[in-house]
């Protein structure tokens, strides 16, 4: 795990600053630990500080009105978790939960704002970071609105199912994502929806096609 000073020195937020300029920033950073399953922040709450993930992995998710959880991404060490609501001045757009023991480094919102006023270079870095996030979200919108992932996934499942004693290819969710030209998270959601509809089921490492006709129809309608 990186120390506070290492994380600040290598973070894209503070890229380009000299070590003498980084010193006072490092003093503003504080550490917080979370146990597995603990919530780092809730959707809809006000954002008070910027969170840098120092160690562990964090699930970034939204919850639908009927309580269904949609994982948007899994954050890895050195990523920031909440820059959009922080700079937007609004409320958290997502919730975040520790998937294992997690350490985060935090900087208060007012301190980040003060640093940006003092060092315009940091403000410029922030623009780059937010632009990158926007690009990621545009890709996600494209995935969700234009691509018929369900139809392609239905075809992939039918093509790779074991039949007549032949052993079909064993596929991970990542494999299915690569074949369907989408993200693993999107496949995960499609599989869950098919399971909820009773079209497929899971028995540990077996994916069971329960409604072959429904899958066929999906693959023909949406491909």
């Amino acid at each position: 795990m990186k120390s506070k000073s290492e994380l600040v020195a290598t973070s894209v937020f503070f890229a380009g600053l000299k070590s003498a300029e980084l010193e006072p920033i490092i003093k503003l950073v504080f550490e917080k630990r979370f146990e597995r399953e603990e919530i780092l922040f809730f959707e809809g709450e006000a954002t008070e500080s910027l969170l840098f993930l120092a160690s562990g992995v964090v699930k970034i998710f939204k919850t639908s009105p009927d309580g269904k959880e949609q994982i948007l991404s899994i954050a890895h060490p050195e990523e920031t978790l909440n820059e959009v609501p922080l700079f937007n001045g609004g409320l958290n757009t997502t919730s975040a939960q520790a998937m294992m023991q997690v350490v985060v480094y935090m900087i208060n919102k007012r301190d980040i704002e003060m640093i940006m006023r003092q060092y315009p270079l940091v403000a410029s870095n922030v623009i780059h970071i937010l632009a990158k996030r926007t690009r990621q979200l545009v890709s996600l919108v494209e995935e969700l609105s234009f691509k018929r992932v369900n139809g392609r996934l239905a075809g992939i499942l039918l093509e790779n199912a074991v039949r007549d004693g032949e052993s079909g290819a064993k596929l991970t969710q990542r494999d299915m994502a690569a074949m369907a030209g989408t993200a693993r998270e999107v496949i995960s959601r499609s599989l869950k929806a098919m399971e909820d509809d009773g079209i497929i089921g899971f028995d540990k490492h077996r994916l069971i096609i329960r409604d072959r006709e429904a899958l066929k129809k999906m693959s023909q309608t949406f491909s």
Partner: peptide
Amino acid sequence: IRCPFQIIFA
């Protein structure tokens, strides 16, 4: 690390 599924018909 991979968790591959064997896809079977019910």
